[in-house]
């Protein structure tokens, strides 16, 4: 990937980001007036008006927008109403947790799916294949809030070996990772299985056998690399979803990630947090897409772009 190609991509991404942030600006303001939420019910009208003036909410929406747009251009995301410090600082504390959680779950799911999907493809039609099929269908379709609650019930309440929620050492990561792991694993097993069956029936696999390659080499060196592209595509999509936070899973386990921050931000009408979160996630997704393209090119020489 050349540098000019990267710049072109970045320019398009910046346009998309501007449109995204503009719609975010108007959408968060549709959630309601934060002043009503932050001041007590019996606060005086004067106090309400004073807070509106302080937050700049007394001016016209258009005037607010131009102010905000100017701040955006200088990458100033404002002060969080709830945390009372710069919103981007709060976001940048939560983002690494989410990225680590998503990356661990996805990498584990990808590796496990490659193994299981390949084994199913090699034994396609046999009982191993059918077993893997049932398992992966179940993993792909079980809702993660249910999986999370059952995990808490079983491992935290009944066996008391894992914490119910919170954040700290590796032990706090086990249940969230397990819950986020299930759906990508199930989906990827199905995809790897399908593309591996196709690759194993290709003529070049016959060539590899004719050359004297044994089964393991034929499967994992010759067929697998040809079968990886669809799995990488889907993993990229899933990574983009996970960058926005493990949503329900973060909430269920009280995991301090960007998903929980975003949901809290919306509930607390903390406009600055919502906007800063969306911005940070969009930038991460841009880099995930670049990474997926680079992976593509390194796996298959035919898709290398000039």
């Amino acid at each position: 990937m050349s540098f000019t190609y990267f710049l072109k991509r970045a320019a398009f991404a910046a346009l998309a980001l501007a449109a995204l942030m503009t719609s975010a600006f108007f959408l968060v303001r549709l959630t309601g007036d934060p002043v009503n939420l932050y001041l007590p019910v019996d606060a005086s009208d004067a106090a309400r008006e004073a807070m509106r003036v302080r937050l700049g909410l007394d001016r016209s929406l258009l005037a607010q927008f131009f102010d905000w747009a100017w701040d955006m251009l200088s990458l100033d995301f404002g002060i969080s109403l709830w945390h009372n410090r710069p919103a981007m600082d709060v976001v940048l504390e939560a983002l690494p947790n989410t990225l680590a959680l998503g990356a661990i779950a996805l990498v584990l799911a990808f590796i496990a799916a490659i193994g299981m999907g390949s084994i199913a493809a090699v034994n396609s039609g046999g009982w191993i294949d059918r077993g893997v099929n049932v398992l992966s269908q179940a993993a792909a379709s079980v809702p993660d809030f249910w999986l999370g609650l059952m995990g808490v019930l079983l491992f935290a309440v009944t066996f008391r070996i894992l914490p119910t929620s919170g954040f700290g050492g590796p032990i706090y990561w086990v249940l969230p990772v397990a819950c986020l792991f299930a759906r990508p694993f199930g989906t990827l097993v199905q995809i790897v299985r399908g593309s591996m069956i196709e690759a194993l029936n290709a003529t070049f696999v016959r060539t590899a056998r004719a050359k004297g390659a044994r089964d393991g080499r034929v499967t994992f060196v010759h067929a697998l690399r040809n079968a990886l592209l669809p799995a990488v595509t889907v993993t990229g999509d899933l990574a983009a979803q996970f960058a926005g936070g493990g949503g329900v899973v973060e909430v269920v386990f009280g995991f301090p990630g960007i998903g929980k921050l975003l949901i809290d931000g919306i509930l607390k009408r903390d406009f600055a947090i919502v906007q800063a979160s969306i911005f940070a996630v969009a930038v991460v997704i841009f880099f995930i897409n670049i990474l997926v393209d680079m992976l593509y090119a390194s796996i298959d020489p035919r898709v290398r772009v000039e």
Partner: peptide
């Protein structure tokens, strides 16, 4: 099975009809 594989390529070699399909596209 593995003894057969060791002979293939080594002592008995096969040339395929359609080289585009028979060569691995990603190596």
């Amino acid at each position: 099975r593995n003894e057969r594989r060791d002979l293939c390529g080594n002592r008995i070699a096969l040339i395929f009809q359609d080289a585009l399909a028979a060569l691995n596209p990603v190596y």
